[in-house]
Amino acid sequence: MQSGMTWQRWTMMIPAAVFFLIFALIPMLIAVYYSGLQWNGISNPQWIGLANWSQVLANGEAVRAILLTIEVMIGSWIIQTPISLLLGVFLAGPQKHRSFFGLFYFLPLLFSSVAVGVTWSYILNPNFGIVNSILQGIGLGGGSQNWLGLPGTAMIVVIILISWQFIPFHTLLYQGGVKQIPDSLYEAAHIDGAKPWHTFFFITLPQLKYTLISSTVLILTGSLTYFDLIYVLTDGGPGTSTSVLAMDMYQQAFVNQNIGVGSVLAVILALAGIILSIVLLRTTGFTRMESQLEGM
C-alpha cells in the first residue's frame, strides 16, 4: 500500500500534470505542426509541408540566427566564468571589506532584464550617455559613439551587458562552492609552504569542478533564452546583427505575422535546448553531481 498508487494519489498528480500538459507539452507539439503551415494567425491556415523549413534553411536565416546564438553562448561563457570564479573566491575570504563589497556585487540581481536593458541603453546613449562622456573625458573617442547602433559593436555590447547582469548569480554559486572546500586542505598546503596561486590552482580550482560544471550548464542553456535584454537594447538590430534565435522567432511570428517560419525557429530552439541538455548531461555528469551532493 505504501508504494502503490491509490485513487487519492492519482488525484494529487492531476494539477501539475494538467498545467504542464496543456500549457507546455501540447504547445511544444503544436509548434511542430505550425512549422508546416502558411498562416498569418488570422486567415485560414494552409498546409505547405516542409516549405518553411527549406526556405529558412536555404536563405541562411536559420544558420545566421544559430551562429549568433552560439556567439552569445561562447562570448558570455568566456566573460562570465573567470570573473565569477575570481569574485566567488574573493568573497569567500574572511576579510571584512570583502563581504562589504559583496553587498554591492549582488544588487544587479534585483532588477529585471527589462530594467537593466533600459538603464544601460541610457548609459550608452550616443548623445547624453555617461560612457561616452567618460571616454571623452579621458581622451578616448569623440564622445558620440553609437554603441548599440553599429553592427560592429552591438553584439559585443549585448554580450557584455548579459554578463554584467548574470555574473552576480554565478559569483554566488562560486562563493558557495569555495565555502564548502575543507579548510584542512588549505592548512596542509600551508604547512607544505604553498604560495597563494599554488593553492588556487591545485586546491581551489579542482575542488570547484562541480560548481564550474553547474555554472557552465546554466550559462550555455540560458544563452538560448536571452530575449528580454536584446528586445529592449537593440530589438535584434541594427539590421540582423543581434537577431538570435529567440529574437528572430519573435519577429517572424509576432511582427511579420509569419506563424509558420516563426514556428520553424521555435522548433529549432527547442531542439537546441534538448540536444544541449543531453550533451551536457552526458559529458559533464551534471545529474551525477547532484546525486552526489544530495548526501551532504
Binding site: 504542464f20 507539452l25 504547445p27 509548434a31 529567440a246 522567432m249 506563424i259 514556428s263 535546448g273
Partner: peptide, 21 residues
C-alpha cells in the same frame, strides 16, 4: 521524467501555440 525534459525547453519555443491557445 517528462517534467524533467521540460527543464530543457525554453519558453520561447512554445510561445506561438500558447498565444493562439
Amino acid at each position: 521524467n517528462v517534467f524533467l525534459v521540460g527543464l530543457a525547453i525554453p519558453i520561447q519555443a512554445a510561445i506561438i501555440p500558447i498565444y493562439i491557445m
